[in-house]
Amino acid sequence: MKRLWAMVQARLLEVVRDRSALAWNLLFAPLLVVGMAVVFSGAPPPLFKVGVLGDAPDTPQTHPFFATEGTRFHREASLDEAMVKLQRQRIDLLLDPSSQPLRYWINTDSEKGRLLQSLLRNSDADAEAQPVSGASIRYSDWLVPGLLGLNIMFSSLFAIGHVIVRYRKSGYLKRLNGTPLRAVEFISAQMIACLLLIVGIAAGMYAATDLFLHLRMEGSYLNLLLVAVLGSMSMIAMSLLVSARISSEELSGGLLNLLSWPMVVLSGVFFSLDGAPAVVQAAAQAFPLTHMLEAARAVMLDGAGLADIAQSLAALAAMTAVFLAIGAGFFRWSQD
């Protein structure tokens, strides 16, 4: 434990002494969050989203309403999940085409939903309405978890991956190998130090952002903290896949970007994946950032408890264990 704590202290002091990098981490993300929130807090683009229970029709001949222009129809897996989306105005209308007459659910607080209802009734006067209510979520409330998760992802990947490669290239790891320090102690110390820094900075950024934007928070802060910790651990462990053996900083930077940017695009940082092709949604589930953002937004926006986010937490824990096992197994101290 003494060796482990000594390495944790050494890594923390190294970060604190690098004032320019520390200032960048502290200031960049909050400015990005506020800027994006201001730019995108206006009205959403005029695109209708309609959820369909069962299989979404492949052709508009199934019902005249499915030929409505400017409307995206996608399949909803269950009524309960679809109702939450409708209440939060993530979809504008919900249809059950298997019922006779056609049954639909509409959020009475949604202007777009009421407009779609009028179009539906023009094509099918017998359609039965099932009204629900619920206020829409500001884009800033949706965006902030994504941007904080994005900052955690980049900090986690590069704080461990790039640094360990630099240590190996400079011969620092080779000198450590001559001490009683074991590889598992070194890796654990790096993870603990980075976890303390990353989660601490993320918590500070959340508090500062909440001060200005008054973020929606329906669930428990402890649950949100648990999501942040497990998400950070999984992405720190992912960086070990790159840093375990590589000694080239240029190659490590390229590989870390190769890992990070697909997550930026596919993990729902800036937009929801509702209605995206099934193959895209399936690919997104392979990334820890996806599970972290799904759990964080469920806690913040829907008041989800531990049981509700248990699947995402389990996925993050499993990814952490797998990445750590692979990274530790391939870890080497020197370039030789």
Rank of each mutant, 00 (worst) to 15 (best):
W5P: 04
V8F: 00
L13Q: 14
R17K: 09
S20V: 07
A23T: 11
V34M: 05
G35L: 08
G35V: 05
M36H: 08
G42M: 09
G42I: 08
A43N: 09
P44W: 03
P45F: 13
P46M: 00
F48V: 14
D55A: 13
D55V: 15
T59E: 12
T62R: 13
T68K: 03
G70A: 01
G70I: 02
T71P: 07
R72M: 15
H74C: 04
D80H: 15
D80E: 12
M83H: 09
V84W: 09
L86S: 03
Q89Y: 05
D96Q: 10
P97M: 06
Q100F: 15
L102V: 03
W105C: 07
I106Q: 08
L116N: 02
S123K: 15
D126Q: 14
D126F: 14
E128F: 14
G134I: 03
A135D: 13
Y139Q: 15
D141V: 02
W142E: 01
V144R: 01
L147Q: 03
S155E: 03
L157E: 02
H162A: 04
V163G: 01
I164R: 05
I164A: 03
I164G: 00
V165K: 00
Y167L: 14
Y167Q: 10
G171M: 04
K174D: 14
N177I: 01
F186E: 01
A189Q: 06
I192Y: 02
A193M: 00
C194D: 13
L195H: 13
L195V: 10
L196T: 10
V199Y: 04
L213R: 11
H214P: 02
Y221E: 12
N223I: 13
L224N: 11
V229D: 02
M233L: 09
S234Q: 09
I236W: 08
A237S: 06
L241K: 05
G253Q: 10
W261R: 05
P262I: 00
M263C: 07
M263W: 10
M263N: 11
L266V: 08
V279H: 09
A284L: 00
A284R: 00
Q285Y: 14
L289H: 04
E294L: 15
A296H: 13
R297G: 05
V299G: 01
M300I: 10
D302L: 07
G305P: 03
G305K: 04
L306W: 09
A307F: 07
D308R: 07
I309V: 11
A321V: 11
I326E: 04
G329I: 06
F331T: 02
R332G: 02
Q335L: 12
